[in-house]
Nucleic acid binder design. Sequence first.
DNA 1: CCCGTGGGTGAAGGCGGCGTTAAGGCGGCG
DNA 2: CGCCGCCTTAACGCCGCCTTCACCCACGGG
Lengths: 226, 226
Amino acid sequence: MADVLIVEDDATIRTALVRALGARQHSTMTAPTAMEGLQSLVANRPDVVVLDLGLPDLDGAALLAMIRSVSDVPVIVVSARDDGDGIVALLDAGADDYLVKPFAADQLDARIRAVLRRADSAKTVGPVTVGGIVIDARSRAAVLDGAPLELSPKEFDLLLYLAERAGEVVGKRELLAKVWNQPYGGADKTVDVHLHWLRRKLGETADAPRYLVRVRGVGVKLAPPA
Amino acid sequence: MADVLIVEDDATIRTALVRALGARQHSTMTAPTAMEGLQSLVANRPDVVVLDLGLPDLDGAALLAMIRSVSDVPVIVVSARDDGDGIVALLDAGADDYLVKPFAADQLDARIRAVLRRADSAKTVGPVTVGGIVIDARSRAAVLDGAPLELSPKEFDLLLYLAERAGEVVGKRELLAKVWNQPYGGADKTVDVHLHWLRRKLGETADAPRYLVRVRGVGVKLAPPA
DNA sequence: CCCGTGGGTGAAGGCGGCGTTAAGGCGGCG
DNA sequence: CGCCGCCTTAACGCCGCCTTCACCCACGGG
């Protein structure tokens, strides 16, 4: 399932965790001190770290800071006491989750799965890219050559619709129907005006288009520059 | 408060626990042996099990394993001696907490509440981080750049909901439905007002947002500052 | 060469979303 | 019973956005 690094000084708990996690299909490696934990972290690159706070050589928060300076690996903190303020401080310092002893092994397993799920779902459904334009529908943000584009709602919808059909010529009536939700009629001048504004924000003009190319009598297409 | 199954062979302790928990608003059911406890478990589906280790017919760990094979109900183990290794083994086997005799009834009550709290918040695992904001659903605590945020209940729910969808634009209707539990209609002005209060507490204004970005005509999104 | 059509550009106006403030009601807690 | 937070609702005003209009130019066909 995952490679788990356990940093825990109590040998009894350590072996118990190794067995419990092993039974749940995780690979484990252990370290009894903060320093050895750090070394193991850089050497073995685990998927997640389970960090006990009561270490002999270093304060847990200090180790967490050192971990964060070299890696963004998810860290689950295990503390002996239910200390609200301390926990908040640790989470703020970069911990991903915490557990208070005593806890069931299933609990730990669930937390591990949760942080892993969060970690790899960070790069799922992708934005649309056309040349130097990147459009993300979920955040409704658009970027041109690395710089954010400030678009009005209709401008964004229009650009997104065209980008999803990049290279394809789209008629003005189709745009009115799909972007403006007007099945029929409607002054298609509105489309012209919005295209004009889009062009301005894309840093181009109708005479020298880079992305928005007019096809006379048919419509427009969004295509990457030649 | 909760339905508690007490598995305990000593009649004196049993009735004492029933009275003590009853006085603290819990419903109780009892079983003097492991076998009867199992039967009661499947028949009555309690919210939590208090399990004494010194049962006549079965080893505590064995009963715990059997319980775990049929249910994930929280189990609080009560043991006569402070046996470190045995306790670790039991926790590893799936116990959620433990107490060593003798103990005060208030202690048990506190553990029951803690276990239940953990159990029903187990499905919303983990704190959420967005930029300098850290939100923990279990403790209902939020932090901004290391300083605690004092949020009203609705403000917290709103922030949490947005943080769980960080970067994604969320419509006001959706917020009314999910945060306010109003499937239809409703004056979405309420959302505006709460967003205003949230912004104030986040140290930002609508004109110069850092986290709460309004997307006109669509909704809002919570995003880390640029 | 003229005219019709399609498109580019600028400006004006109205509408509606949104920010903000304040008042009132409701429930919890002492 | 009274206080106090919290939530809701209403009112007001601003400003951004969309639409519409007017006028221009470019192109292409008769």
